[in-house]
Design a protein around this nucleic acid. Structure first.
Lengths: 152, 152
DNA sequence: AGGTTGAGGTCGATGGCGTCCACGGACTGT
DNA sequence: ACAGTCCGTGGACGCCATCGACCTCAACCT
């Protein structure tokens, strides 16, 4: 992980569809060298995936909610996690410090679907209570912060 | 936005680096047809960006925090937003219903940096108070839920 | 009914790109 | 000094992106 690798990471976080040739021009190496470096970043677990970022409303996911979860005393956290994982609406899942063990980000199409999701969460064994906040709008999301040292 | 478009969106959310030829095979069209469709999805605002998803710890962003913001009565929300936007550590920003107007997701390298960020947030004009929760681990993040109707 | 128009597809060609391979130079440890 | 290793370059070759020409079909107008 040298400065060139960080540079490649920044470039690909900005635009995952850049060609190896273009990446090579940007970092001042040849295309095969970049190809090998990116391959190592992928297999080394630095780059996890390449994803298209989609405007959720346009694909029928207009409702965003953030849900805090309080576990039952004596709940099996792994089982709870497994149950969450099986719900595709839960896009993100953080294990938190504090009273609420988890914070979930969920996206659904309608408030009715959100209601159903919350009911399912409350019925999940190990879940004591939920606390839901609705996002009225997403100002921005997953903005990549640059990590490469400034060039020059 | 027909079923084929939704299919393309799902495919690209799963792997943004798929070639047009591969996409074409998957949806049963020719490569130029797919090229045109994807171009329209991009210029039509459905596909916002293509991003490499990176393991944050590997690039020195080991601390994730979720921060609720209570605004001053009479604060200018746009000014507050501008101030948040200028802080690169804030990766996501949701405008929320409830007492806390904003929920921020921030990533920094160390707890000391998080402390500095919170101080800066509390000093921001229009911010009355902050409430920070630390994510002990990210179980998953931005998992794309499929939206295309099942084929066949 | 028939002609026109436009959207959206296929096909074919071409230039650039991805990817494999052989080779070369700089560090490192002995 | 020398061998080994790492990391790069350059060349070659096949696939891909992308453009233009053409086709098909449905909607619409006269």
């Amino acid at each position: 992980m040298d400065a060139i690798d960080l540079n490649l990471v920044d470039l690909l976080r900005g635009n995952a569809r850049l060609s190896y040739a273009e990446l090579a021009r940007q970092v001042g190496l040849s295309a095969p060298a970049v190809h090998e470096r990116v391959g190592k970043l992928e297999s080394g677990g630095v780059i996890r995936a390449y994803r298209a970022e989609v405007e959720p409303e346009t694909i029928g996911l207009g409702v965003t909610a953030l849900i805090g979860i309080v576990e039952d005393s004596g709940a099996d956290t792994d089982d709870v996690l497994e149950a969450f994982r099986a719900m595709p609406e839960i896009e993100s899942c953080y294990f938190m410090a504090g009273v609420e063990s988890f914070l979930l980000k969920a996206r659904v199409g309608t408030i009715a679907e959100l209601e159903q999701l919350i009911v399912r969460l409350n019925r999940t064994p190990g879940v004591a209570s939920t606390r839901t906040g609705i996002a009225l709008s997403t100002k921005w999301e997953n903005r990549p912060q640059p990590v490469a040292p400034p060039t020059g």
